[in-house]
Every structure is written in C-alpha cells, then in structure tokens.
Design a protein around this nucleic acid. Structure first.
Lengths: 132, 132
DNA sequence: ATCACCTATCTGATTATTACAGATAGGCGC
DNA sequence: GCGCCTATCTGTAATAATCAGATAGGTGAT
C-alpha cells in the first residue's frame, strides 16, 4: 500500500476529487446569470440546492470578481433595508458570448466523457465506428 | 473598473481552458491500462490519436509516477534493443478499484454537465420533482 | 445586552493540477 | 557531424480549488 514514512502529505492520486467537477465554475456562474440578476450568496444557494454544485464561498466570490474584472459580468450594490448589502451581478454582452463559448467547450467535455465510458465498458469499436 | 496598470498578466476568466478537459487525466491513464501494459509514450500517443486527449509529456509522466507512488499502477523497465528503454506500466488491483471509483465520479460529472445544458437551453423543469 | 445564528462579502495561505520550457539519452539516416 | 524521432524526467509558473478566518448587519432567545 502506501509509504507511511513520508514527511509531507499529498493527495492520493487515485481518488477522484470530491464534490463539484472542477474547472467550469465560471460556466455555472455565467449560466446562472442568464436571464436573472443575482448576488453571490443567492447564486451559491441555488447552485447547491438545485444543481448540487457545492462551492466554498471564497471560491465563488473570487470567481465572480474575476469575471467582472474581465468584463463578463457587472455589478452594483443593492442596499436593502434588512440584512447586509449585496453585490448584484448581471451578464454583459461579452458575458453572453463567453457563455456560448463555454457551452461549446463543455459539449467537447461531454464527448470526451462519453469516449471514456465507451472505453471503460469495452464498447469501443476498435477498428473505427463504422457500425451502422 | 479595470486596472490596466497591472504588473502581472492573468488568465481571462471568461474563456474555457483550451485542450483537454482537466481533472481526469488520472482516470484516462488508469483506463488506458485496463487490459494492456503500456509505457508512457505509448499512452500519450494513443490518447492523442484515438481520443483527442492531448497532454504534455511532463504532465503525463509525472501523473504516472504519482499513480505508481500511491500503488495504483506498477512498472518495470523494458530494455528493448532498439530505442531508449521504456518504463512499462500495469494496473494493480488497487488501480482497478480506483478506476471504478473514477467511473462513478465521472458519471456524476456527466449528470452535472447535463444539468448545465438543460439550464442553458432553458429545458430546466422549474418545479422540480415533488417526490414524496 | 450578550450570545448564537443566519445572511453576505472578502482575504490569506496552502494544495492540486496543468502548462510551458528544457534537459538527457538511445538510435537512425544523411 | 547534424537533425529527427523515440522515451523519460525535472524546474518553474500559472490556474483553480480548499481550508481557515475576518468583517459586518440583522434576528431571536436567554
């Protein structure tokens, strides 16, 4: 098994990351803002409750600031009477374009996943997929 | 507002990563070794040619060493007459188990992707499933 | 009024994974 | 010799996530 005498711990290479698939939180943030103006906390809750995408607050807020920094979303403060103020985000035109880009990229991700499962389950057509 | 006077460049937050989907190179390496003993260079070529999974050599070799470090694959030197020696890898029992784990995780990834596309194309069932 | 808790945002430090670049080396053909 | 393909590996930077905590407004209970 493993070598217990290591000085520095490291992640087990064979275990998939727990929780949300990585690398497309940006896409999720963009798609959440498609048609709605939401603030960070709301996005976080929606992602968790409706889509089981759990993310730590720091990650979400940081990602939103990055998207704003690059012009894909813009924000303003919503000074409600009750509770702390919220920063409300809206998609820009550039953000809408970016979302399309992400969608295309994620379609490729999905094809890639399908290829993995074909290989894993042994359904891979070794000579080519001329099966019809 | 954007600050144009930044000293260090950074990645554009709205653009999906080019190339291979991230975070499951390990799964690809494990599945490639399911049933075959291959060396790193061969895995790299197969991934690129058959599955369009392009990875830089350093990343692949490093990932293989990590998998070996944690006991999911094991290797030996194949001293062929022609060309440089190759390190040939084979799946261990633990590696087979890890592959199953990865498969389960990637199924969840795929469901997550489907949810994204449902939301993106507006096919989301707003009222959920009121099971009970 | 203090405390616990929920909302709401943000930052610092660390880890994980990939990207980019280059080193090393064997063998082949010119 | 030189260039090219095979084959492996290391150093360093960038990216994205995790873990931990700070800050602050508001509500309800003790």
């Amino acid at each position: 098994m493993k070598d217990a005498s290591e000085e520095h711990p490291h992640k087990d290479a064979g275990r998939p990351p727990k929780g949300t698939p990585k690398n497309y939180l940006m896409a999720w943030l963009l798609v959440m803002l498609k048609g709605y103006n939401l603030h960070g906390y709301e996005i976080m809750k929606e992602l968790k409750e409706r889509f089981d995408v759990i993310s730590d607050p720091g990650t979400v807020y940081r990602a939103l600031r990055q998207l704003e920094r690059d012009g894909y979303i813009s924000s303003w403060w919503d000074a409600k009477d009750q509770g702390p103020a919220r920063r409300v985000y809206t998609l820009t035109d550039a953000g809408n374009d970016a979302l399309k880009l992400w969608s295309t990229a994620l379609e490729a991700y999905r094809s890639n996943l399908d290829a993995f499962f074909n290989l894993y389950t042994g359904n891979w057509t070794e000579d080519k997929q001329e099966d019809e």
